[in-house]
Design a protein around this nucleic acid. Structure first.
Lengths: 158, 158
DNA sequence: ATCAATGCAAATAATTTGCAAAAAG
DNA sequence: CTTTTTGCAAATTATTTGCATTGAT
């Protein structure tokens, strides 16, 4: 269950680095291993913390310098959930068009795909004279847990 | 063309303030008049600038203290278009569920409604065990101007 | 050797806040 | 009078950057 997931994405990112003659240092390796070993969204601060478990020498600056590379590669997306800090989503290699639904109470995030919505987006955009490059759909609401148990535990990342 | 639009929204916001026994000072009045007189999205800095044309004494702090009231009332929404600063949208009184399509080059923003998408969102959310509270759909792409003229002028707010 | 990458600490930039003075009810 | 609001300037917070040093190729 903990074995290296997203091996494909990791490899792709290494190639991305190579293509720009950027080096794979031990710090970057730790960051990459962390990113492509989780399905969870994370903040810069969390990534720092997690990466340091693999390599104590990872600094905040290096995390902040690596994040733009990850997003530029398209394998990680920068998200905004209305918090003060940015959140990063490592699941775009598998599901390049996925959407998010977030519980307003516990901040649980569920990802889903919808071809129908995608298609409608395309039609409407075309009608308005746009050709679609990216789309981002976020729904917020209450999750089952809240309805059943009366409350779901709050979380907060930054 | 310049006459007070959104008179209804403005009135609603005044009532919202009254309900919380908050006062309508001259500075707040200038800010409110500005907000409900435009269809455009704006940043805190722009709101400050525009409000000062109505009342020189409006300060940055007051703008920043008034914005949360505007969003709390639901008449203005805080948006995030991946820029460093937040953008505010004053068009939610008329179209409470509208979506955005943004040109990646000139940052032109077009708003649109889609009942079909809304319905799909509801169905999917329900299937995933969520009841929808809000939804936010942003599409980015290239606008006609770019395709026809080869380029559309870039803009940047912050 | 050469050029990229690092950690550190200082710098940014948007937003927030403490406080004493001013204004509203 | 009492309570809210203001402007100012200082504080906060996430993120970025300059620089001298270290590490990869």
């Amino acid at each position: 269950m903990a074995a290296p997931q997203k091996a494909h994405a990791k490899k792709k990112f290494m190639e991305f680095l190579g293509g720009k003659s950027l080096r794979i240092t031990s710090q970057r390796q730790a960051i990459i291993d962390t990113v492509f070993n989780t399905e969870e969204h994370f903040t810069a601060e969390q990534l720092l913390e997690w990466s340091r478990k693999l390599d104590k020498s990872v600094s905040r600056a290096t995390v902040y310098r690596t994040l733009p590379l990850l997003t530029e590669s398209g394998l990680v997306h920068e998200m905004d959930f209305g918090k003060d800090c940015k959140v990063y989503d490592p699941n775009y290699a598998d599901h390049p068009n996925h959407n998010h639904i977030i519980c307003q109470d516990c901040e649980k995030i569920v990802e889903f795909d919808s071809e129908k919505i995608e298609q409608l987006e395309g039609e409407i955009s075309h009608r308005l004279g746009f050709s679609v490059k990216t789309h981002r759909l976020q729904i917020t609401g209450s999750c089952d847990e809240l309805k059943k148990l009366g409350a779901c535990k709050k979380k907060s990342s930054c």
